[in-house]
Design a protein around this nucleic acid. Structure first.
Lengths: 221, 221
DNA sequence: TGTACTGTCATGGGATACCAAATATATTAT
DNA sequence: ATAATATATTTGGTATCCCATGACAGTACA
């Protein structure tokens, strides 16, 4: 793998070196360019990025704490390979957290929030690119739960986003029927929120997220 | 702070140095011996533990990823000082996750599980030490959600345990009335589980966890 | 034929020494 | 008194060396 290519996508090295290495590797992993199981040799990475092995090790340790990298003691690091079971676990937790956060946020939503949600849906109908769709999907959930102002929830959702979505992108957004269904579900959630039925909207959101479990790639361990 | 004292409590240095340093610092933080806001100077730690600054830095980065340490770029690390608001956020997420996990686990519980839960409650009635009570409380929740077999949930719950409980220990377990109430709530949860009402038991558990919000120390920022 | 031992090699893990950058504090000049 | 400047402290990073570990290949031996 050409780490320099990844580095360019992330941008110039600014601030702490370790932070930069972290961003480069995380970008590589979450984008899918570094696939699960890929060996991440310290010397290779440090040579390609022209840094010493120290900040590389620190970045790897942090990525391990975030689940993105698995460190086998004395045998090096690999990009974490999720199992189907773990992926299912993640979707259930994501659904649970999102439900509760939406349950709190929706009663606090303004008219502008609702309008913004509708705009996101309209953009989704026109989206063409895989990553653009994912971004809009994430945006929808962000607006929906914004008013809850729960930083811990945001962190957990972000963690799951980093870990899980690289496995789901293709399955979720490449099939037109699935795309249409997903947008329809978003619309149903928004309609319920508009009607002031926070319980119904949150419940829809919960089920909507759990739907993803049915689209986990077949060829997973 | 005497880091050597902490090190002895953790045990001898086995395996990777970095891993050992991590355990020492985490033990110090979660136990409350290293209080929020305490400066963790790299040289001090490495000198006290007779290791170089390399594994110390790695341990600090991991602790940062877990929320226990806050790194101020170029200005060092401190033990994370939670705000009241963040602590409340954590309890809500803990309640949400526990609810869903219990909802799944309870229908799968065996007779032995239920007996074990009752035993934990009986032990709680006799517990005298602060840490013993906390351990039993954690044990109760562990048995209750064990059958759900959701590793991601376990990790998140453990993360919150590490971050939040050092602030709650005194408030939750030092007051006798509060203790009795907590045990009674555990009994109510178990009774509902025994009666086969997973929904009721999970709902009780949810509210039981949220109760902790009322016992957050007054003197928090 | 198969098993156990041995040596080599790639890689990770860690120590040491040194330097650069950033921040806080003290000092000096006006 | 205040702005500018020096100084000390600490972190962040590099280079280099060395040891430990696990994988693997080959070899001896039963």
């Amino acid at each position: 793998m050409d780490y320099r290519e990844l580095a360019e996508a992330v941008g110039p090295r600014t601030g702490a070196t370790q932070e930069w290495v972290l961003r480069v590797l995380r970008e590589g992993i979450t984008s899918g360019k570094l696939k699960g199981g890929t060996q991440l040799k310290q010397d290779e990475v440090s040579a390609a990025l022209t840094v010493s092995h120290i900040p590389v090790r620190e970045a790897l340790r942090q990525l391990e704490a975030q689940g993105l990298v698995t460190i086998h003691p004395n045998r090096g690091s690999t990009v974490t390979q999720l199992t189907r079971s773990t992926l299912e676990d993640m979707m259930e937790i994501r659904a649970s957290i999102s439900y509760y956060i939406a349950r709190r946020a929706i009663p606090l939503m303004s008219q502008e929030d609702l309008t913004e949600l509708q705009q996101v849906i309209e953009e989704q109908k026109k989206a063409s690119d895989l990553f653009e769709e994912e971004r809009l999907n994430y945006k929808f959930h962000e607006v929906l739960t914004r008013r809850a102002k729960n930083k811990v929830a945001d962190m957990f959702i972000e963690l799951i986003h980093w870990n899980a979505d690289r496995y789901l992108r293709n399955a979720l957004y490449s099939d037109d029927a699935r795309r249409a269904q997903s947008i329809a579900e978003h619309q149903a959630i928004l309609d319920a929120a508009r009607a002031g039925d926070a319980e119904k909207a949150s419940s829809f959101l919960h089920d909507h997220i759990l739907e993803a479990r049915r689209y986990i790639p077949e060829d997973m361990e």
